[in-house]
Design a protein around this nucleic acid. Structure first.
Lengths: 199, 199
DNA sequence: CAAGTTATGTAGCGGACGGTATAGAACCAT
DNA sequence: ATGGTTCTATACCGTCCGCTACATAACTTG
């Protein structure tokens, strides 16, 4: 019967995720990770393999716990346009409050050009986000609450791109007027002209 | 009379800029820089002070040579709406072709949270970009070629945020449909409804 | 008790990091 | 020729990097 672990895995993964999120992958050392996680190097390597393996665990865990959860919650709890508005509102609020930004976006920028697995993951998650917007846009257009004058695909793409931009600005220029204004305009473009007849 | 330098400054700065642009600051070592610049370490330090000093030189030079030049060119050569359309078109084309993305955006993400000077620089350059959009939007609204139904400020903010997003996607998800679609929608929102009376 | 399995702590590995010391080189002026 | 100034090359510094060796610890089973 092996010796039991002396740490709680969720707790140490939270600590590691936070460091990677703040500093990026290259600028986060294994010693700093160990200190934050309160683990010696052999314990850390024993439990997670190596720096890269730990990073992958942190990233997977982060991704399952943030964007997907938000999409699920909003998609199931609100009408289409409200879901988009709430999504953007939450992203702006988070971006103003948390200078870490979004780990996916951070990783996309840092590792995307050099790491095929990361680029692949970014593609998949980007598609999920776009998919959420597209579903909501189509449903909203069908019920006449979202402007049907332009393709929902392009709207979804602009919203997706906007979210990426907001998340970079979170780290470097979290200006209330800028972020709120961008979201306000993005939402405004959804509104059908007053002349749009109900379907 | 001192010994003349054995290198061309522009050439070595180009080489260094390229490395920082591709890899980011933390993941670029002084040895790699030296190799790319074909300078020994003492020569590099003698000429540029230290890694940080070299980085600052590269960044200043990049910033003067890219966004400002583009804004100047488009602003003086095209009508307002055309200038915005061309700007976005060029950003999309560059983003599809060059996986380095944009050094300002890369730096914003990597160093923005930890380096007040960088955050300050990002703020200033973001304001310049926003200023370009705002001038063009106002002029376009005044001549009736851009929708005056929403505040030009919010439009400028969304366009600015979109550019940041496009530049992150350049590194991680340079998908033609996504980037072109986002730009197409951003441009479409500028168009006044057919009912908008000319001023 | 011993055996087996995995976890943890101290100490250390080889190599990479940003940067420096020092000697000699390249140039002009006297 | 010497003197003065800055530039460059080789070698090196102290420290940090990701990771490992090895002894001991913690647990269950027989």
């Amino acid at each position: 019967m092996p010796r039991p672990r002396g740490f709680d895995e969720d707790t140490v993964l939270d600590a590691a995720t936070d460091l990677f999120w703040r500093r990026g992958y290259a600028a986060t050392s294994v010693r700093d990770l160990g200190a934050a996680m309160r683990l010696s190097a052999p314990s850390l390597y024993n439990a997670f393999g190596d720096k890269q393996g730990l990073f992958a665990r942190c990233l997977d865990r982060y991704l399952d716990g943030t964007m997907r959860a938000r999409i699920r919650r909003l998609e199931s709890g609100k009408p289409p346009r409200r879901a988009i508005e709430a999504f953007l509102g939450e992203i702006v609020a988070a971006s103003l409050e948390d200078p870490r930004g979004c780990l996916l976006v951070n990783v996309a920028q840092e590792l995307g050009p050099h790491d095929a697995a990361i680029a692949s993951l970014v593609a998949a998650r980007t598609a999920e986000l776009e998919g959420f917007f597209l579903r909501a846009l189509r449903a909203g257009q069908a019920e006449g609450r979202i402007d049907a004058g332009l393709p929902a695909e392009d709207m979804a793409r602009l919203l997706t791109t906007t979210v990426f931009g907001l998340r970079v600005l979170a780290r470097s220029r979290p200006d209330r007027a800028l972020l709120h204004g961008a979201a306000r305009q993005a939402i405004a473009m959804l509104i059908p002209p007053a002349k749009e007849p109900a379907p």
